[in-house]
Write a protein that binds this DNA or RNA. Sequence first.
DNA 1: TTGTAGGCGTTATCAG
DNA 2: CTGATAACGCCTACAA
Lengths: 335, 335
Amino acid sequence: MDDVARECGLSKMTVSRVFQGYPGVSAATREKVLSAAKRLEYEPNVLAQNLNSNRAGYIGVATPFEGLLGSHYFSQLLQGFGNVMKDTGFDFALFDTLAESFNDPGKLAKLYRQRKVDGLFVVAPHMQDDFIDTLSDLRVPLIVIGENISSKTVCSFACNDKQGISLLCSHLLALGHSRVAFIGGPQDLASASSRRDSYRDFLKKRRVKVPDWYVQPGAYDIQSGREAGIFLLNSKPRPTAIIAANDLMAFGVMESARMLNLQIPEDISICGFDDIPASSQYWPPLTTVHQPVKEMGEQGARLLLDSLKRDKIPRGQTEIEVTLVVRQTTAAPRK
Amino acid sequence: MDDVARECGLSKMTVSRVFQGYPGVSAATREKVLSAAKRLEYEPNVLAQNLNSNRAGYIGVATPFEGLLGSHYFSQLLQGFGNVMKDTGFDFALFDTLAESFNDPGKLAKLYRQRKVDGLFVVAPHMQDDFIDTLSDLRVPLIVIGENISSKTVCSFACNDKQGISLLCSHLLALGHSRVAFIGGPQDLASASSRRDSYRDFLKKRRVKVPDWYVQPGAYDIQSGREAGIFLLNSKPRPTAIIAANDLMAFGVMESARMLNLQIPEDISICGFDDIPASSQYWPPLTTVHQPVKEMGEQGARLLLDSLKRDKIPRGQTEIEVTLVVRQTTAAPRK
DNA sequence: TTGTAGGCGTTATCAG
DNA sequence: CTGATAACGCCTACAA
């Protein structure tokens, strides 16, 4: 900056003002400064600006790399964040909650106190992750996204799993099904247990009795869907409909049905949950629950941004409405 | 820091030394400082450290959010980066090359000159992306990952597409196939056109003649694979084998074969490229080319780190070897 | 419209 | 082993 100032015969202050877009600078001076800056390849040093403003210019996104980074879900979420953050001067910093450094339960708070980030999103943490508990009373601008957090002092956004499962169950019962089975997800994910519990509660409330084995465990992947599918479709009485706790497992069930020469949806109705892109492309296209993930990201980002502006900690737990997407894997059961 | 120093009756310097782990501090003093720091909830301010050291503590990762963020590929890559970067004090900053701010072709260089990041990975850029051209002579520690860049002054890491296609073609020819069709990817991706060209070159070299329509366009998704598959499998003479330029399209082809009541692999052999997790889980499991993406990320990260340490710009173009994974979608053609 | 002084929180350097 | 001073590059506040 000194160089540019000297080159123009001005003080650093004037150069600074030009780059801040400060209005009280004559057009001629501004011109001179900008051209000198270009010539000298000068760019304001963000590091110094940061120290001055006590701002990192980064919003942290903490997530398990292994489980989530490659998912459509994460991609949608970040696009939602990005839509809101694009003109705010904030960029994204990425942290792996599975990394060793996250063994330190205070890690998240540290990132903030050290001013490595100005705020944080925690995306779909595992339920038992230590650090969640440590979050509640730390005064960190932080939002948990994608899981309903039991601690009521932590701000969170999540899709309404219970509502989604109700939509699926109602749909199937309305079609005339009474033997509805369920394949759950990893039990350390809050959403997975929530989906399973919602299924049980719904059927109980509607007084639909199902045998114990109609609730199968799964791992949110095709493989486990196929295995559970084979088991269920070979069991007696065979279910007439199967709800998988996510779309990937539903694909596995569809394969198992095919292997057993059962027609979808005539012999067996199948539902998923998530509405990943493949679900509409698969044949037959999958009946599932659509989560407005991008919108959830946008809402979360707006709230965080707002909190940062007012220097407050975000509060409140928000559940986003989901919608049923009826495609071609569900129909009335055969007589 | 002043507070802690005062509390201990020491100078800031000593506090600083304690936090830097500087050896020349008496154990008693160290103890005193640490306990005071804990009491006062003091953490060194990274922003000030950054200004002092002229280091951002961030490695930028620039990628198209929409196309790549949700891919297994990206996830593997970042895990590779992470393995190498974990104890270096660098974290990751994420930038969307599709964002408006990237219309500025100098954006990448700017991120570096402003010290927003200390180095950059550019992941699988689109071929025509403007900014790639502007990269060559900027002295920015930058590595392009996942695409072979024509500009020889830009450092890059990529998997050897040509070798991968050769492996697939050789495999099929060895099984006795002579009618081998191909479904390509989006032509603005360097790897997609490279795969298609490699296919053409290989068959020409082996003097295998195929009709024009055996090369179909695709969009790297299931849908386009299914469409191209239907077209090819209905064409006369029908190919006995189809290579899809990625696994997703291969799944589409498998579906189309099923819809036409063709047996895989007896009636039609199908290959993919990428070896995404679903490929081994699908039924039948897909013959494909495995790219060591995580290793590529590790190698790239090591090189970048090394360059940063020596204050040099990384150089050179590296192609990573791929491997053929023969599963159950390929077999000798029927007589 | 432009300039001067001081401070943001840390660390390198040199002195004690 | 510990302390004083200056510097990192910028911006706020005030002065001219």
